[in-house]
Amino acid sequence: MFPSKALLSILLIALSAVDASPLRREAASTLTFTARMNARANNANIVDADRARAQAMQHPTISKRASSSSFSIASSGTVYTAQVGVGSPATQYTLLIDTGSSNTWVGAKTPYKQTSTSVATGNSVSVEYGSGSFSGEEYLDTVTLSSDLVITGQSIGVASSSPGFNIADGILGVGPTDLTQGTVSNVASVPTVTDNLYSNGNISTEAIGVYFVPGGGAGELTFGGFDSSKTTGSVNYVPLTTTSPSSEYWGIDQSIAYGNSTILSATAGIVDTGTTLILIATDAFNKYQSATGATLDSNTGLLMITSDQYANLQTLNFNIGSTSYGLTPNGQIWPRSLNSDIGGSSDNIYLVVNDIGSNSGTGLDFINGYSFLQRFYSVFDTTNHQVGFATTSSTSAVSN
């Protein structure tokens, strides 16, 4: 079900505009993941997939059992996987990192191998994701994320059925605990991997830092805070929004300006790694399209601009709390080396800002997705109910 603070889909940390030292964890508590394009997996473009996900988030009562990350699992333009060990000796599984669901499970491709640490609970487990699902049995087992992130007695699902999953062995669920409610028989909810890392003393704060590299490739998920070696400035924090339905996820309040002109007044939306693009309310999108002079490309669903229009592109400013995060012209365009992956022409210039599908005033008027987060380090802090952002060496990179 959807919780009151969900979607690690990912990433909030709150209140002050300075680093909070208890949140700092260095690379020893970091899990490396691989990002890759999945845009054409279901013959749908990334705009369709992102907008479908957004609509599900805007109407959470439609499917209380389905994770808001359902569209990211089988349809998202970008997926993230990590190698995770289960058992002792550990079997390595390729798991999707999902910030919008919280059950960890294996068995979609590589079969679960029982070892001396495997304990069958006798409970059944079932999770529906909209575009996929899994069902099977619950086990308690040792889960190894890294040499210093080892969890004993972690609840995992062992899939006997997993329709819709053909790109990984299962899921590493790093969303809020509430998302596990109703998924395992005979228990109200089960602790997530982050819960257990915190309760076992592996991490001092139940927070997760996320670092992306523009254009895909490797990234890092840091448990217990953030990796300061990846930031070039202070982490600035804002509290979670109280506006529904954004408050059901990792929601924040922000305004957006193109150059010196506000295109979206202060409103609520969410931060979500499971969304590939930056989605904004229709009225704001229309202002952005008009200001840039872009035209809509029917093949990709993305806005397209000429080289001359790119030369005149202005910074897109995301005003969050007391800080403005400027997305440079280069940060607003789709990586040209990946144009063919989305069905586009190698010579075209596409923009990563798109229409969420409804006018502002829904309570979820924007999604700062992967295209925003690859330029800024982000932190999701469950303990303090907040989200944080910091600049990185990629913030102003000319990489697209």
Score class of each variant (00 low, 15 high):
135 S>M: 06
196 N>E: 09
291 A>K: 05
73 I>L: 13
396 S>V: 07
61 T>Y: 11
349 I>K: 02
329 P>L: 05
383 T>G: 07
57 M>H: 05
200 N>F: 04
347 D>S: 14
394 S>P: 01
208 I>P: 15
153 G>N: 12
328 T>Q: 12
179 L>M: 15
97 I>A: 07
387 V>A: 10
391 T>Y: 07
16 S>M: 14
354 N>V: 02
345 S>K: 03
199 S>L: 07
159 A>T: 13
31 L>T: 10
365 D>K: 07
111 P>T: 05
65 R>Q: 15
282 T>Q: 06
94 T>L: 10
356 I>T: 00
171 I>Q: 05
69 S>P: 03
149 L>G: 11
29 S>K: 06
255 S>G: 12
366 F>V: 05
35 A>R: 09
77 G>L: 02
204 S>N: 13
366 F>Y: 06
358 S>V: 09
133 S>F: 09
240 L>E: 11
328 T>E: 06
389 F>A: 03
245 P>L: 04
199 S>G: 10
357 G>Y: 01
243 T>A: 06
55 Q>K: 15
75 S>T: 13
48 D>R: 10
288 Y>E: 05
9 S>D: 11
234 S>G: 12
270 I>A: 03
133 S>Q: 15
170 G>A: 05
287 K>W: 04
99 T>M: 07
40 R>F: 13
353 V>L: 09
241 T>K: 02
383 T>D: 09
316 L>D: 07
44 A>I: 11
217 G>Q: 07
234 S>I: 13
126 S>W: 07
314 Q>T: 11
